[in-house]
Amino acid sequence: MSDPALGLPLLLDLLNEFKKISGYKVNFQKSERTLRNAHYKFKYLGIWVTAKLKDLYKANYQLLLSSLNRDLERMQFVIIL
């Protein structure tokens, strides 16, 4: 967040709206501990969250694409049989 003074209130408003609509809320204490303890990356809801934005692609997309390709190869084998 390049300007926390401007961005944090907007983010908190967005999270509050999400809570009203979904009934879910963010556990800020747990989130803060998770972020502080993660030096490079951690997994959250099945997604690897990296310390650097540029590493998100490598940590998630490449692994997902490889897994998808393996699944497609297996499906082709089953369809051929």
Rank of each mutant, 00 (worst) to 15 (best):
Ala59Ser: 05
Tyr44Val: 14
Tyr57Leu: 06
Leu10Thr: 02
Lys25Thr: 11
Leu12Phe: 07
Arg33Phe: 04
Leu35Pro: 01
Ile21Asn: 05
His39Gly: 08
Glu32Met: 09
Ser66Lys: 15
Tyr57Gly: 03
Leu8Ser: 09
Phe77Asn: 13
Arg70Leu: 15
Pro9Gly: 05
Asp3Val: 08
Lys54Glu: 11
Gly23Arg: 01
Phe42Glu: 02
Lys52Ile: 04
Ser31Met: 10
Ser2Gly: 15
Ala5Ile: 07
Ile21Cys: 03
Tyr57Thr: 13
Pro9Val: 00
Phe42Ala: 02
Leu6Met: 13
Lys54Ile: 11
Ser66Thr: 14
Tyr44Asp: 14
Gly7Ala: 14
Thr50Leu: 01
Ala59Asn: 01
Pro4Lys: 09
Gln29Tyr: 06
Leu8Gln: 08
Leu15His: 01
Asp71Gln: 15
Gly46Met: 04
Leu64Pro: 00
Ala59Val: 09
Tyr61Ser: 10
Leu72Asp: 09
Leu8Asn: 09
Phe18Glu: 05
Glu17Thr: 11
Asp71Ser: 13
Leu56Tyr: 04
Trp48Pro: 02
Phe18Asp: 03
Ala51Tyr: 03
Phe77Val: 13
Lys19Val: 00
Ser67Lys: 15
Thr34Ala: 12
Leu53Ile: 10
Asp13Lys: 05
Phe28Asp: 08
Ser22Ala: 03
Phe18Cys: 10
Glu73Lys: 07
Asp13Cys: 08
Gln62Glu: 15
Phe28Gly: 04
Arg33Tyr: 05
Leu81Thr: 14
Tyr61Glu: 06
Asp55His: 01
Ala5Tyr: 06
Ile47Phe: 00
Gly7Asn: 13
Gly46Pro: 00
Pro9Gln: 05
Ser2Trp: 06
Leu6Phe: 04
Lys52Asn: 10
Glu17Asn: 11
Met75Asp: 13
Lys41Met: 07
Leu12Val: 12
Met1Glu: 13
Tyr61Ala: 08
Phe42Trp: 03
Ser67Ala: 12
Val49Leu: 07
Asn69Trp: 10
Ile79Cys: 11
Leu56Ile: 12
Leu53Val: 12
His39Trp: 06
Leu11Glu: 05
Leu56Ser: 06
Gln62Gly: 06
Leu81Trp: 07
Asn69Lys: 10
Arg70Gln: 14
Gln62Arg: 08
Phe42His: 05
Pro9Asn: 07
Asp55Thr: 09
Ala38Gln: 04
Gln62Ala: 13
Ala59Cys: 06
Phe18Lys: 07
Ala59Arg: 00
Lys30Met: 09
Leu72Ile: 14
Phe77Asp: 15
Asn27Gln: 04
Lys20Glu: 07
Asp71Pro: 02
Val49Ile: 15
Leu35Glu: 04
Tyr44Glu: 10
Gly7Gln: 15
Tyr61His: 09
Thr50Tyr: 01
Leu72Met: 07
Arg70Ala: 15
Phe18Leu: 04
Leu63Ser: 11
Lys41Phe: 03
Ser31Gln: 07
Pro4Ser: 07
Met1Thr: 07
Met1Ile: 05
Asn69Met: 12
Leu6Glu: 10
